[in-house]
Write a protein that binds this DNA or RNA. Structure first.
Lengths: 358, 358
DNA sequence: CCTGTTACCGAAAGCGATTTCGGAAAACAG
DNA sequence: CTGTTTTCCGAAATCGCTTTCGGTAACAGG
């Protein structure tokens, strides 16, 4: 299926060269600051290039240089879920940072019936990208496994459980949830339930670890039925809360793996006529703007997702420019944002009820 | 600044040709289904290509063909705001649709101090994209003005006020808000206030038109101070609601330009101790999942943003493949999603108070 | 058996840059 | 004024693929 060739009417280096009475090679070297071109000539070429609106064809340049200054980002396959705000923010930051280095951002979706690694492999083989950013890492992540042996620069937002021979930027999720627990315990809570996410996702695992270790450290009651896993959206959160409200030893606080889950939980609690922030405290994680808009405001551990996107972009470009340099591995902290959803427990409930089975 | 040439270790057509004992040209034509290649040969080439994992370099292919199968999407400059969920959904749908046609999606941000048109211009001149999708159109949109005379295929999500000689896909915002008003009036409301967005954004303008015309048609009270403009986020919505609550003739319902605004309004109302869905009804627009998670659930006009993204992708690719064909101009309808935030007005308030100045 | 088609494939010329290599002109030294 | 460096630029090869243009071999018809 041969196609037509709709040649763009843009200026080529040949035209620019003819216009200047120079050879293409000279023009090219002038624009790329080669030392063997007279400064006067460089200036002349620059000026003409500006006037004619010349921009080198990135296609031709890529072919000649053999370098692709484009970062790939594969959107997680949507299994009914919608793309979450956290990813959107990362993308925004990433695009912004890449623009500053004159790199491009290629966003790819995973078609039905394919998987992420397949998509990445095709992007690499067809020479469309020169690096990757991987978001929302899993404990055991095939994407990272693949990229590790692919010779291509990449940065992971998050970490995996096993290997550590690659660049990543992660939030200290464990510490964040320990902090959150400290806050709750400091407020007087001892009966704290946990709405966790898919433990395959490393952040969910890490947060759970933080919760569990802090609960132990503080000697919190941990009756069975206090810890949920696999809560990934608002609806799941509502169901979990419904369960929880039937619990003989009702918790006074709820720690949630994400803001979305926390908001779902708050909704469910409000629906059940329970006053959030009063009868039950809730803490989330993310720092979504929405957390400020709901009632009561959501107390949460905030992470600067836009900044994460930017930093990740910076790292991947740096790595592409200096392949031999050691991997950046950066750990950032989340910060506690206090709003109305977490307060001291209601007085009547401050009894050390006999805990159930852990 | 000459760079190194880190040649990828991928298979080239030359290697494949040598491996097969054929010429490069023949291999190329075989893979592109030229009619003058024996079917047997095509099959043989196909097989070998699969086995060797050959993928043609898109860079070389682009250079040779002079066609760039990439759609550009410029993220709106973030003036403190965060990227909204609606855009994220569109992106997701767009990427998915493009993947099916084997097109790529290039997402660009606007660096500080530049504007969107500049960014688009550079993307075109440097040959990085072969088409554009423009989202969130303004009534008077420089991006559309620019693209109209740029000879490059593009699709606008939304419309502009003036020209109509380009492809677009829009929601019938005016009708949607008339429908919303009909719903409110049907419930018994007559005193309805409006929290509108930036009227430069065409959807905000259209929705406002819908509100105003329906209000007139139904003979609703329209005292001054009932219509707000420029409400773009939750905080602005809160301030507007604060104003509104001081109004001598308090409205019984609130129509909001977006879900985000509606959620901000609900928050403000709840904060003021007013029961949403009871004392005051609220309706939004978008159909964000969050609207289902808040309490009470948000009654809203839903639009299928993911589908919009897909359709827009389909259109732009179609247009790129058949440049001469007429512009697709598609109008979709939003659908009313009823939840708890809009109900008949409280009985005591159902008095036809004397309206203020319109 | 000879000629006219058809069916297939090879050769070669781009596409628009980059980069190496070498040579002419200019600058410097003696 | 000649010989040697520098400076600066042109020529040409390349990157990997597409596509046009012939040309050979096979096949048909007479």
């Amino acid at each position: 299926m041969p196609r037509v060739k709709p040649r763009r009417e843009t200026v080529s280096i040949a035209q620019l060269a003819k216009h200047l009475g120079l050879s293409e090679g000279t023009v090219s070297r002038a624009l790329n600051n080669y030392p063997d071109i007279a400064k006067k000539t460089i200036a002349r070429v620059r000026k003409a290039a500006d006037e004619l609106g010349y921009r080198p064809s990135t296609t031709a340049r890529r072919l000649a240089r053999g370098v692709v200054e484009t970062i790939g980002f594969v959107l997680p396959a949507r299994h009914g879920h919608q793309i979450d705000p956290f990813l959107a923010e990362i993308l925004d930051g990433l695009a912004t940072e890449l623009a500053l280095s004159d790199w491009d951002l290629l966003v790819a979706a995973v078609p039905e019936g394919h998987d992420e690694v397949e998509v990445m492999d095709r992007l690499i083989r067809s020479g469309k990208v020169g690096g990757f950013v991987v978001a929302r890492s899993r404990r055991n992540d095939p994407r990272v496994d693949f990229l590790r042996k692919s010779q291509i620069p990449f940065v992971v937002q998050g970490r995996t459980a096993k290997y550590d021979d690659y660049a990543w930027l992660d939030i200290d999720n464990e510490k964040a949830f320990i902090d959150a627990m400290n806050h709750l315990v400091g407020l007087g809570h001892r009966k704290i339930a946990y709405l966790g996410g898919d433990p395959d996702l490393n952040y969910a695992w890490q947060r759970r670890e933080g919760f569990v270790s802090a609960a132990k450290a503080h000697g919190c009651d941990m009756p069975s039925g206090y810890v949920f896993d696999g809560i990934s959206d608002e609806m799941a959160a509502r169901h979990a809360v419904t369960e929880l409200l039937k619990h003989p030893d009702r918790p006074t606080a709820l720690l949630c793996v994400t803001d979305a889950v926390a908001i779902g939980a708050i909704h469910a609690l409000a629906h059940a006529g329970i006053k959030v922030g009063d009868e039950i405290s809730v803490i989330g994680f993310d720092g979504l703007p929405m957390g400020e808009a709901i009632h009561p405001g959501l107390t949460t551990m905030s992470q600067a997702s836009y900044q994460i996107g930017r930093e990740v972009g910076r790292i991947v470009v740096a790595q592409a420019n200096a392949p031999a340099s050691p991997f950046s591995q950066i750990l950032w902290e989340a910060s506690l944002t206090i709003r109305g959803s977490a307060n001291p427990p209601a007085q009547k409930s401050v009894t050390n009820a006999k805990g159930g089975i852990s």
